[in-house]
Each structure stands twice: as C-alpha cells, then as structure tokens.
C-alpha cells in the first residue's frame, strides 16, 4: 500500500497521458465513425465503395499490428510521428472503422418506411438524415458504441509499446523498479491497482451511456421502432 502512495505522483503523470489519449481518441474516432458511416449509406456508389474499403482494411488487422505499422511506417512516407501521435492515429483509424459499422448498422435499423414517409413530405435527403433517421439511429448505436469506447480506453495501454509513458507503462516501470530494488515483486498489488483504475474509467463511461439511453427512452420507442398494426401493403 505504501508503495502505491509513494509513487502516486508518478502514477498520476501516467494517468494524465492515458486520459488525454483516451479523450482525444474517443472524439476523433466518433467523428470518423459518423463520417465513414454516412458515406457507407450514401447514394453515390463511389463513396460507398471507399467507405467499405476503409472499414475492411482497418477492421481486419489486429490493433497492435496496426499501431506498430503506423509508428514504423510513417517515417518511411516522410511523416515522422511522435509516439503519442502515432498511437492516437492508429486508435482513431481502427476505432473509426469499427464505429462506422456500428453507425451503419444503426442507420439501417431505422426502417425504410421512415425514409419514404419523410420523402413524401418534401424533405431533402440531408434533412431526412438530420431530423428523422439519425436521431432515431442514436438508440441502436449507443450500446455497441459504448462498448467500442471502453475498448478504445483500454487499448490506450498499447501505446506503451511505442514509448508513450501512459498509465500502464508507469505501472510496469514501478513493478520492475521495485522488484530490482527490494527483491520481491509487487506485481499483484500494482497491476491490481491498475485494474481498478481502468475499471473506474470504463464504468464511468458505461454509466454515462446508460443515462443517455434513458433520456432517449422518454419517447417510448424501442431500439427498432415499428409502427403498430403494420401489415404488408398490397
């Protein structure tokens, strides 16, 4: 216990990196997700194909490989990246690809009838998305998107592999240093502490998400809104 208190300042400096990386990643990944998600349902085939290629590429490679690929590959194309930037970029690209599929799924969950109905009222395509489809898509998007966000927060720990002194790296250093200095390993204590910190951050996220879900529930709609009494038209 005393060990944890001794190194508190050290842990906090690492945590600062982690929180900064996590927040930036979440913001950037969500922006990319919405952009690519909208592209994948665009009326223009070129945009749809571009979105599909993006998603397939970044989704099908492991995040770790992704990170190393970007960190070591960037200088080769003339863009030297600091470790923090490389981590942010690779997490954003990967998170954006997965998020785009969540956004696309959410949009498709909103029945075509909503789109047709709004079209019949003379609304323009972007207006239909902005006022009718996307607000409803928030419900099916929110739970899986929250899952993705917690994964991204935990994935910031991978940044340690390219030299970012984020929280996990700090805990590693404390364990190694203490083991060398005192002969026994505080691994269980320190990593247990790390576990609790990540748990605290992620559960705060999920609690926020649940609150948002409840706010969306007030309209009485379920995730897949279907009008009552609907029959197939002749």
């Amino acid at each position: 216990m005393a060990l944890l208190l001794e190194n508190l300042g050290f842990f906090l400096s690492g945590l600062e990196f982690t929180v900064r990386l996590a927040l930036l990643t979440l913001v950037c990944a969500i922006v990319v997700s919405v952009l690519i998600g909208l592209m994948s349902v665009s009326q223009w085939r070129g945009l749809r194909v571009a979105a599909l290629c993006y998603v397939e590429f970044w989704r099908d490679i492991p995040l770790l490989v992704n990170l190393l690929f970007i960190y070591f590959g960037a200088p080769l194309v003339g863009v030297p990246l600091k470790p923090f930037a490389a981590a942010l970029l690779s997490l954003t690209l990967w998170g954006g690809a997965n998020g785009a599929e969540i956004v696309r799924g959410g949009i498709n969950a909103i029945g075509r009838h909503q789109f047709v109905s709004a079209t019949a009222l003379g609304l323009k395509r972007w207006e239909i998305y902005r006022y009718v489809v996307l607000p409803q898509a928030l419900m099916p998007i929110l739970p899986p998107m929250t899952g993705l966000c917690t994964t991204l927060v935990q994935a910031t720990s991978l940044a340690s592999l390219v030299g970012v002194n984020e929280f996990f790296r700090i805990t590693q250093i404390v364990v190694e240093r203490t083991t060398m200095q005192s002969g026994h390993s505080p691994a269980f204590l320190v990593y247990g502490f790390a576990l609790m910190v990540y748990f605290a951050i992620c559960s705060a996220l999920t609690r926020l998400s649940r609150y948002l879900e409840q706010r969306l529930q007030k309209t009485g709609t379920s995730a897949i809104a279907a009008p009552r009494g609907f029959k197939e038209s002749a």
């Binding site: 009838h113 909503q114 609304l123 607000p135 309209t219 009008p227 609907f230 029959k231």
Partner: peptide, 24 residues
C-alpha cells in the same frame, strides 16, 4: 398518407406536423 402512418417516433405530434413546413 400511408397505410402504416409512419409518424416519426422520436417527435411529438406537434413536432411531427411542424417539421416539414418549417424545413420547406
């Protein structure tokens, strides 16, 4: 007017009615 009425479920009756005229 459609067979399945398809009101916008996330909007109140008033908001449903007012959306298109304002946008137009």
């Amino acid at each position: 007017v459609f067979q399945d009425y398809t009101l916008f479920p996330h909007l109140t009756a008033i908001e449903n009615i007012g959306l298109a005229p304002v946008r137009a």
